[in-house]
Design a protein around this nucleic acid. Sequence first.
RNA 1: CGGGGCGUGGCGCAGCCUGGUAGCGCACUGGCAUGGGGGGCCAGGGGUCGUUGGUUCAAAUCCAAUCGCCCCGACCA
Length: 564
Amino acid sequence: MRWTRSLIPTLKEEPAEAEAVSHKLMVRAGLVRQLAAGIYVTLPLGQRVMEKINAIIREEMNRIGGQEITMPVLHPAELWQQTGRWTTIGEEMFRLYDRGKRQMCLGMTHEEVVAWLAAREIRSYRDLPQIWYQIQTKLRDEARPKSGVLRTREFVMKDSYSLDRDEAGLEKNYELHKEAYCRIFTRCGLSFHAVESDPGMMGGAVAHEFMAPSEAGEDEIALCDRCSYSANVELAVSRPRRPTFTTWDLEEIATPGAGTIEEVCRFLQIDPALTIKSLLLITTDGPLLALLRGDQQLHEKKLAKLVGEARSAHRDEILTYLRVGPGSIGPVGVDLPIIADESLREGRYVAGANKDGFHLRGVWPGIHFQPRWADIHQVSNGDQCPHCEGSLRIERVIEVGNIFRLGTKYSVPMKAVYLSEAGDEYPIVMGSYGIGLARIAAAAVEQHHDDLGIIWPSAIAPFQLHLLPVNMRDQKMGELAEALYSQLQQAGIETLYDDRDERAGVKFKDADLLGLPLRITVGTRTLREGMVDLKTRKTAKEAQIPLPEAVSAARTLLSRLANS
RNA sequence: CGGGGCGUGGCGCAGCCUGGUAGCGCACUGGCAUGGGGGGCCAGGGGUCGUUGGUUCAAAUCCAAUCGCCCCGACCA
């Protein structure tokens, strides 16, 4: 493609509103433009990247037996009312009325439509299993769109749905998807982890998310350095490191002015892991004292699963329930329900004395107070793995895909059933599997760039080769470049031909910014010695190649890059 | 939804505090020179200062409301 006939609006300066590296680079390289918060136009270069990703996904989905379909974006409300999600989902769904005042919504996912279709078209066990997928736009009224194309209100997603007779069939399709996803992300050049995840509003058993490590990510995962344990911190469990305990006797000690864990530890010269952090929470059932070790953080979601939604108490509520200020709360002698983290089962601790300016030393959980035990701490860096002796590290990641076992959650209300060999009616067992296309592109940019710009993995690069004549006003040079361009095209090498009458420096900067895997420079050396420069973006290695060998050398290098 | 920040040519910004001719860099148009890393010279075009209302002789500047965008948090198939 000729640059002069393309829309490739590169930017010298960073857009003011961009924060994430991928956001800055995708805008600067002319891949996307923002229309409104969380709504983007995909420009020609970005479109080519999306199509590359698209093709890879399609190949891998077809390979596991997926059949491509297209489902509507506009849905009647009844569909969602049948499964109950019309009311459970809330403001994240775009809702509207048609001219006949019928309530409609914009599809944020398609379990309902799939179940609807299955209810009509699947009758017998002979019709199963099926995998249906689409690559389609989804709409979600995100509370906070952010980080460029990483969290948008309108986005293209590959979503597939498996239909099976039973759990065993679902398990098989789940595994097939897991394998397909690994191939897809690997082919797209991403490094990633498949981790255990919270099924959230999808329902069902433990699910998996595919996470690409990146600073710009919104999620965190815990990874074991010894075994294969890996999980979203939303549900990750750990055994916190064991501190060196002291066999203190129970005694009250004055801690003037020391309220926070940090202050108390400094005052007493002890490890925060030897203290109990006491939090007064207000649940729908009233006040609750939650206990953690001083070095741990409360995991609100874990707690919410046990006691429902909880908020921290206001200062006056603390005074009402405990007759003490926030700095000296403790579990001993308290007449409130207490929930304590498992890590407190062993050892003796320092805790608030429920008396301003005082703490208790030698508090023995289970003896001096009786809590309900539970895992309510957040996994932190260095905690011990729940399955082995390894230690966990926390990594920030971008969620690029996820897979869910839905079971019969949608087939039952939608009456998607089949008849077994014995003639009995059973609900179809479903799975659902998503991949965010733009997130793959953004994650790839996050993982592959340098100070100068993007370094595309060749599988999803918008073009394979950047042909750059240094001076278009030199007629001879122009002719050589033109000739080389048509040879490259004939050779089937996707080439972006920078035929602009720009200064060499401008073109070089743009080439680095766009980040195509390979660059051929036609310059004075070509005129003088018949050599072109062949430069690999990733390694920055440049080689001089005789002009007649340029195409074959490029082909060789590109195939090497494609396999690396 | 809570907290914070920002809206001034296409992009990035200054001017606002202390009201009085709207400015800089880049980009763009025409020309000159140059031609291997965002270089130089000359001449141009382009802005209801987000919007609305108020204060004032006079508002980009002060006040109020409103809209938009970004960041932190809450939320997130």
